[in-house]
Design a protein around this nucleic acid. Sequence first.
DNA 1: CTTCCTGCAAAAGTTTTGCATTAAC
DNA 2: GTTAATGCAAAACTTTTGCAGGAAG
Lengths: 148, 148
Amino acid sequence: MASLNKADVDEQVASLLREKGHRYSNTRRMLVRVLLTAGKPLTNNQIVESDNSLAQSSVYRNLNVLEEVGAVTRIVTNNEFSRYELADEITEHHHHIICTSCGDITDFSLPSKLEKSLNQSLRTAASKVRFTIDQHRFDGLGTCVACQ
Amino acid sequence: MASLNKADVDEQVASLLREKGHRYSNTRRMLVRVLLTAGKPLTNNQIVESDNSLAQSSVYRNLNVLEEVGAVTRIVTNNEFSRYELADEITEHHHHIICTSCGDITDFSLPSKLEKSLNQSLRTAASKVRFTIDQHRFDGLGTCVACQ
DNA sequence: CTTCCTGCAAAAGTTTTGCATTAAC
DNA sequence: GTTAATGCAAAACTTTTGCAGGAAG
Protein backbone atom coordinates (compact mmCIF):
# COMPACT_ATOMS: atom_id res chain seq x y z
CA MET A 1 0.00 0.00 0.00
CA ALA A 2 1.32 3.39 -1.04
CA SER A 3 1.52 6.32 1.33
CA LEU A 4 -1.25 8.82 1.87
CA ASN A 5 1.06 11.36 3.45
CA LYS A 6 0.55 14.72 1.76
CA ALA A 7 4.26 15.38 1.19
CA ASP A 8 4.83 11.94 -0.32
CA VAL A 9 1.84 12.28 -2.59
CA ASP A 10 3.06 15.68 -3.73
CA GLU A 11 6.44 14.25 -4.53
CA GLN A 12 4.98 11.36 -6.52
CA VAL A 13 2.69 13.64 -8.50
CA ALA A 14 5.48 16.14 -9.13
CA SER A 15 7.67 13.36 -10.40
CA LEU A 16 4.97 11.99 -12.72
CA LEU A 17 4.40 15.47 -14.13
CA ARG A 18 8.07 16.34 -14.63
CA GLU A 19 8.74 13.05 -16.39
CA LYS A 20 6.43 14.23 -19.14
CA GLY A 21 7.56 17.85 -19.18
CA HIS A 22 4.73 19.32 -17.13
CA ARG A 23 4.94 21.72 -14.20
CA TYR A 24 3.46 21.21 -10.76
CA SER A 25 1.57 24.49 -10.73
CA ASN A 26 -0.49 25.94 -7.94
CA THR A 27 -3.76 24.79 -9.48
CA ARG A 28 -2.46 21.25 -9.81
CA ARG A 29 -1.32 21.24 -6.19
CA MET A 30 -4.77 22.35 -5.12
CA LEU A 31 -6.45 19.62 -7.15
CA VAL A 32 -4.28 16.98 -5.53
CA ARG A 33 -5.00 18.36 -2.09
CA VAL A 34 -8.75 18.44 -2.69
CA LEU A 35 -8.82 14.88 -4.01
CA LEU A 36 -6.61 13.65 -1.18
CA THR A 37 -8.72 15.18 1.56
CA ALA A 38 -12.01 14.15 -0.05
CA GLY A 39 -10.96 10.50 0.03
CA LYS A 40 -13.54 9.66 -2.62
CA PRO A 41 -14.08 10.48 -6.29
CA LEU A 42 -15.27 14.02 -6.99
CA THR A 43 -16.90 15.67 -10.00
CA ASN A 44 -15.44 18.73 -11.65
CA ASN A 45 -18.28 20.77 -10.14
CA GLN A 46 -17.66 19.48 -6.64
CA ILE A 47 -14.03 20.49 -6.97
CA VAL A 48 -14.84 23.95 -8.27
CA GLU A 49 -17.40 24.47 -5.50
CA SER A 50 -14.93 23.36 -2.85
CA ASP A 51 -12.62 26.22 -3.74
CA ASN A 52 -13.98 29.06 -5.81
CA SER A 53 -10.56 30.37 -6.75
CA LEU A 54 -10.54 27.52 -9.30
CA ALA A 55 -11.78 28.13 -12.84
CA GLN A 56 -13.99 25.48 -14.42
CA SER A 57 -11.86 25.18 -17.54
CA SER A 58 -8.60 24.99 -15.63
CA VAL A 59 -9.95 22.19 -13.50
CA TYR A 60 -10.98 20.23 -16.58
CA ARG A 61 -7.68 20.91 -18.29
CA ASN A 62 -5.58 19.97 -15.31
CA LEU A 63 -7.52 16.85 -14.47
CA ASN A 64 -6.85 15.76 -18.03
CA VAL A 65 -3.15 16.41 -17.64
CA LEU A 66 -3.07 14.62 -14.32
CA GLU A 67 -4.90 11.69 -15.87
CA GLU A 68 -2.42 11.59 -18.78
CA VAL A 69 0.57 11.33 -16.49
CA GLY A 70 -1.16 8.68 -14.38
CA ALA A 71 -1.77 10.70 -11.23
CA VAL A 72 -5.56 10.60 -11.28
CA THR A 73 -8.21 8.26 -12.67
CA ARG A 74 -11.46 9.22 -14.33
CA ILE A 75 -14.59 7.28 -13.40
CA VAL A 76 -17.75 7.41 -15.49
CA THR A 77 -21.08 5.91 -14.53
CA ASN A 78 -24.00 7.44 -16.37
CA ASN A 79 -23.92 10.27 -18.84
CA GLU A 80 -23.65 12.74 -16.03
CA PHE A 81 -20.39 14.25 -14.79
CA SER A 82 -17.19 12.27 -14.70
CA ARG A 83 -15.60 11.81 -11.32
CA TYR A 84 -11.89 11.88 -10.50
CA GLU A 85 -9.75 10.32 -7.80
CA LEU A 86 -6.05 9.90 -7.14
CA ALA A 87 -4.66 6.97 -9.13
CA ASP A 88 -4.26 3.49 -7.67
CA GLU A 89 -0.46 3.78 -7.70
CA ILE A 90 -0.67 6.73 -5.36
CA THR A 91 -3.34 5.44 -3.03
CA GLU A 92 -3.90 1.68 -3.47
CA HIS A 93 -5.80 -0.60 -5.81
CA HIS A 94 -9.49 -0.70 -4.91
CA HIS A 95 -13.00 -0.94 -6.31
CA HIS A 96 -16.16 1.12 -6.19
CA ILE A 97 -19.72 0.84 -5.00
CA ILE A 98 -21.70 3.35 -7.01
CA CYS A 99 -25.15 4.77 -6.29
CA THR A 100 -26.99 4.80 -9.60
CA SER A 101 -29.41 7.35 -8.22
CA CYS A 102 -27.18 10.17 -6.93
CA GLY A 103 -23.79 9.08 -8.31
CA ASP A 104 -22.13 8.86 -4.92
CA ILE A 105 -19.21 6.43 -4.71
CA THR A 106 -17.49 4.55 -1.90
CA ASP A 107 -14.42 2.36 -2.05
CA PHE A 108 -13.81 -1.26 -1.14
CA SER A 109 -11.11 -3.88 -1.70
CA LEU A 110 -11.13 -7.53 -2.64
CA PRO A 111 -9.08 -10.26 -0.98
CA SER A 112 -5.80 -10.44 -2.89
CA LYS A 113 -6.40 -14.07 -3.79
CA LEU A 114 -9.65 -13.13 -5.50
CA GLU A 115 -7.94 -10.20 -7.16
CA LYS A 116 -5.34 -12.56 -8.61
CA SER A 117 -7.96 -14.99 -9.92
CA LEU A 118 -9.78 -12.12 -11.57
CA ASN A 119 -6.65 -10.87 -13.27
CA GLN A 120 -5.83 -14.31 -14.53
CA SER A 121 -9.30 -14.93 -15.96
CA LEU A 122 -9.24 -11.53 -17.58
CA ARG A 123 -5.84 -12.08 -19.15
CA THR A 124 -6.88 -15.43 -20.54
CA ALA A 125 -10.01 -13.93 -22.09
CA ALA A 126 -8.08 -10.94 -23.43
CA SER A 127 -5.44 -13.01 -25.16
CA LYS A 128 -8.16 -14.90 -27.05
CA VAL A 129 -9.36 -11.67 -28.63
CA ARG A 130 -5.84 -10.23 -28.78
CA PHE A 131 -6.45 -7.31 -26.47
CA THR A 132 -3.68 -5.82 -24.34
CA ILE A 133 -5.04 -5.17 -20.85
CA ASP A 134 -3.92 -2.06 -18.93
CA GLN A 135 -6.28 -2.19 -15.98
CA HIS A 136 -9.59 -3.55 -14.81
CA ARG A 137 -12.54 -2.19 -12.95
CA PHE A 138 -14.98 -4.06 -10.77
CA ASP A 139 -17.86 -1.92 -9.57
CA GLY A 140 -20.97 -2.63 -7.61
CA LEU A 141 -24.00 -0.70 -8.83
CA GLY A 142 -26.86 -0.02 -6.48
CA THR A 143 -28.51 2.49 -4.19
CA CYS A 144 -26.95 4.32 -1.25
CA VAL A 145 -28.68 4.65 2.09
CA ALA A 146 -29.74 8.24 1.40
CA CYS A 147 -31.48 7.33 -1.87
CA GLN A 148 -33.30 4.19 -0.70
CA MET B 1 -28.52 -19.19 -20.08
CA ALA B 2 -31.46 -17.40 -21.62
CA SER B 3 -32.52 -17.88 -25.20
CA LEU B 4 -31.18 -15.88 -28.12
CA ASN B 5 -34.04 -16.93 -30.36
CA LYS B 6 -35.55 -13.84 -31.96
CA ALA B 7 -39.15 -14.76 -31.14
CA ASP B 8 -38.33 -15.48 -27.49
CA VAL B 9 -36.40 -12.25 -27.14
CA ASP B 10 -39.31 -10.34 -28.64
CA GLU B 11 -41.70 -11.90 -26.21
CA GLN B 12 -39.49 -11.10 -23.23
CA VAL B 13 -39.03 -7.50 -24.29
CA ALA B 14 -42.74 -7.09 -25.06
CA SER B 15 -43.58 -8.42 -21.63
CA LEU B 16 -41.10 -6.09 -19.89
CA LEU B 17 -42.55 -3.13 -21.77
CA ARG B 18 -46.21 -3.98 -21.14
CA GLU B 19 -45.60 -4.48 -17.44
CA LYS B 20 -44.78 -0.79 -17.26
CA GLY B 21 -47.45 0.43 -19.63
CA HIS B 22 -45.30 0.83 -22.72
CA ARG B 23 -45.99 -0.38 -26.24
CA TYR B 24 -43.75 -2.58 -28.35
CA SER B 25 -43.68 -0.24 -31.32
CA ASN B 26 -42.02 -0.79 -34.64
CA THR B 27 -39.00 1.32 -33.71
CA ARG B 28 -38.49 -0.66 -30.52
CA ARG B 29 -38.69 -3.92 -32.43
CA MET B 30 -36.03 -2.67 -34.81
CA LEU B 31 -33.74 -1.64 -31.97
CA VAL B 32 -34.00 -5.08 -30.42
CA ARG B 33 -33.29 -6.73 -33.74
CA VAL B 34 -30.26 -4.55 -34.41
CA LEU B 35 -28.80 -5.19 -30.96
CA LEU B 36 -29.51 -8.90 -31.21
CA THR B 37 -27.84 -9.33 -34.58
CA ALA B 38 -24.89 -7.10 -33.68
CA GLY B 39 -24.02 -9.34 -30.74
CA LYS B 40 -22.00 -6.56 -29.17
CA PRO B 41 -22.71 -3.14 -27.65
CA LEU B 42 -23.51 -0.40 -30.17
CA THR B 43 -23.54 3.38 -29.97
CA ASN B 44 -26.58 5.42 -30.88
CA ASN B 45 -24.81 6.49 -34.06
CA GLN B 46 -23.97 2.96 -35.07
CA ILE B 47 -27.62 2.04 -34.68
CA VAL B 48 -28.86 5.01 -36.69
CA GLU B 49 -26.33 4.30 -39.43
CA SER B 50 -27.32 0.66 -39.59
CA ASP B 51 -30.84 1.63 -40.60
CA ASN B 52 -31.48 5.13 -41.80
CA SER B 53 -35.22 4.92 -41.29
CA LEU B 54 -34.45 5.52 -37.61
CA ALA B 55 -34.44 9.05 -36.22
CA GLN B 56 -31.63 10.03 -33.86
CA SER B 57 -34.00 11.30 -31.16
CA SER B 58 -36.27 8.28 -31.36
CA VAL B 59 -33.34 5.97 -30.91
CA TYR B 60 -32.18 7.86 -27.84
CA ARG B 61 -35.70 8.00 -26.45
CA ASN B 62 -36.39 4.35 -27.02
CA LEU B 63 -33.08 3.12 -25.69
CA ASN B 64 -33.90 5.02 -22.52
CA VAL B 65 -37.30 3.37 -22.28
CA LEU B 66 -35.80 -0.04 -22.97
CA GLU B 67 -33.20 0.59 -20.30
CA GLU B 68 -35.88 1.67 -17.80
CA VAL B 69 -37.83 -1.55 -18.23
CA GLY B 70 -34.66 -3.64 -18.01
CA ALA B 71 -34.41 -4.80 -21.61
CA VAL B 72 -31.13 -3.11 -22.48
CA THR B 73 -28.06 -1.98 -20.56
CA ARG B 74 -26.09 1.19 -21.11
CA ILE B 75 -22.30 0.99 -21.03
CA VAL B 76 -20.10 4.04 -20.64
CA THR B 77 -16.34 4.15 -20.91
CA ASN B 78 -14.96 7.59 -21.65
CA ASN B 79 -16.93 10.74 -22.24
CA GLU B 80 -17.70 9.65 -25.76
CA PHE B 81 -20.91 7.95 -26.83
CA SER B 82 -22.72 5.50 -24.62
CA ARG B 83 -23.14 1.98 -25.94
CA TYR B 84 -26.15 -0.27 -25.54
CA GLU B 85 -26.67 -4.03 -25.48
CA LEU B 86 -29.50 -6.39 -24.62
CA ALA B 87 -29.74 -6.89 -20.87
CA ASP B 88 -28.13 -9.82 -19.07
CA GLU B 89 -31.53 -11.35 -18.30
CA ILE B 90 -32.25 -11.64 -21.99
CA THR B 91 -28.85 -12.83 -23.17
CA GLU B 92 -26.69 -14.05 -20.26
CA HIS B 93 -24.51 -12.51 -17.60
CA HIS B 94 -21.11 -11.56 -19.00
CA HIS B 95 -18.31 -9.01 -18.82
CA HIS B 96 -16.51 -6.67 -21.20
CA ILE B 97 -13.09 -6.05 -22.58
CA ILE B 98 -13.04 -2.46 -23.71
CA CYS B 99 -10.59 -0.75 -26.04
CA THR B 100 -9.84 2.63 -24.49
CA SER B 101 -8.61 3.88 -27.83
CA CYS B 102 -11.53 3.18 -30.22
CA GLY B 103 -14.23 2.15 -27.76
CA ASP B 104 -14.74 -1.29 -29.25
CA ILE B 105 -16.05 -3.92 -26.85
CA THR B 106 -15.98 -7.71 -26.74
CA ASP B 107 -17.62 -10.02 -24.24
CA PHE B 108 -16.25 -12.70 -21.94
CA SER B 109 -17.47 -14.73 -18.98
CA LEU B 110 -15.98 -15.72 -15.66
CA PRO B 111 -16.08 -19.21 -14.13
CA SER B 112 -19.25 -19.36 -12.05
CA LYS B 113 -17.26 -20.12 -8.92
CA LEU B 114 -15.33 -16.89 -9.32
CA GLU B 115 -18.54 -15.05 -10.11
CA LYS B 116 -20.01 -16.27 -6.83
CA SER B 117 -16.95 -15.24 -4.81
CA LEU B 118 -17.11 -11.81 -6.37
CA ASN B 119 -20.75 -11.37 -5.53
CA GLN B 120 -20.16 -12.43 -1.98
CA SER B 121 -17.26 -10.02 -1.46
CA LEU B 122 -19.27 -7.26 -3.02
CA ARG B 123 -22.29 -7.89 -0.83
CA THR B 124 -20.18 -7.93 2.31
CA ALA B 125 -18.58 -4.62 1.38
CA ALA B 126 -21.92 -3.10 0.41
CA SER B 127 -23.64 -3.98 3.65
CA LYS B 128 -20.90 -2.19 5.59
CA VAL B 129 -21.72 1.09 3.84
CA ARG B 130 -25.45 0.25 3.69
CA PHE B 131 -25.72 0.12 -0.09
CA THR B 132 -28.27 -2.09 -1.83
CA ILE B 133 -26.57 -3.79 -4.79
CA ASP B 134 -28.52 -4.31 -8.02
CA GLN B 135 -25.74 -5.50 -10.29
CA HIS B 136 -22.01 -5.46 -10.79
CA ARG B 137 -19.70 -4.86 -13.69
CA PHE B 138 -16.21 -6.21 -14.22
CA ASP B 139 -14.48 -4.75 -17.24
CA GLY B 140 -11.01 -5.12 -18.64
CA LEU B 141 -9.63 -1.88 -20.08
CA GLY B 142 -6.95 -2.02 -22.72
CA THR B 143 -6.16 -1.82 -26.41
CA CYS B 144 -7.64 -3.90 -29.21
CA VAL B 145 -5.51 -5.48 -31.91
CA ALA B 146 -6.45 -2.82 -34.46
CA CYS B 147 -5.32 0.03 -32.20
CA GLN B 148 -2.04 -1.45 -30.98
C1' DC C 1 13.35 35.37 -20.84
C1' DT C 2 11.12 31.54 -22.66
C1' DT C 3 7.71 28.22 -22.15
C1' DC C 4 3.88 26.58 -20.00
C1' DC C 5 -0.39 27.66 -17.41
C1' DT C 6 -4.64 30.40 -16.41
C1' DG C 7 -9.20 32.39 -17.05
C1' DC C 8 -12.70 34.08 -19.71
C1' DA C 9 -15.93 33.47 -23.27
C1' DA C 10 -17.20 31.01 -27.14
C1' DA C 11 -17.51 26.46 -29.49
C1' DA C 12 -18.07 21.55 -29.86
C1' DG C 13 -20.30 17.25 -29.16
C1' DT C 14 -23.67 14.16 -27.12
C1' DT C 15 -28.20 13.73 -25.33
C1' DT C 16 -32.83 15.62 -24.17
C1' DT C 17 -37.14 18.11 -25.01
C1' DG C 18 -41.40 20.72 -27.23
C1' DC C 19 -44.73 20.20 -30.35
C1' DA C 20 -47.59 18.85 -34.12
C1' DT C 21 -48.46 14.50 -36.51
C1' DT C 22 -48.89 9.51 -36.75
C1' DA C 23 -49.22 4.81 -34.99
C1' DA C 24 -50.64 1.38 -31.38
C1' DC C 25 -54.11 -0.92 -28.98
C1' DG D 1 -61.18 6.83 -30.19
C1' DT D 2 -57.65 7.55 -26.71
C1' DT D 3 -53.16 7.38 -25.37
C1' DA D 4 -48.57 6.72 -26.42
C1' DA D 5 -44.78 7.09 -29.95
C1' DT D 6 -42.47 9.56 -33.79
C1' DG D 7 -39.60 13.09 -36.18
C1' DC D 8 -37.96 17.43 -36.75
C1' DA D 9 -35.64 21.32 -34.97
C1' DA D 10 -34.23 23.71 -31.12
C1' DA D 11 -32.41 23.55 -26.39
C1' DA D 12 -29.69 21.72 -22.61
C1' DC D 13 -25.57 20.11 -20.56
C1' DT D 14 -20.90 18.61 -19.97
C1' DT D 15 -16.45 19.19 -21.74
C1' DT D 16 -13.01 21.33 -24.91
C1' DT D 17 -10.64 25.11 -27.20
C1' DG D 18 -8.76 29.99 -28.74
C1' DC D 19 -6.54 33.66 -27.17
C1' DA D 20 -4.50 37.36 -24.45
C1' DG D 21 -2.36 37.95 -20.06
C1' DG D 22 0.27 35.91 -16.04
C1' DA D 23 3.18 32.46 -13.56
C1' DA D 24 6.92 28.88 -13.40
C1' DG D 25 11.51 27.61 -13.89
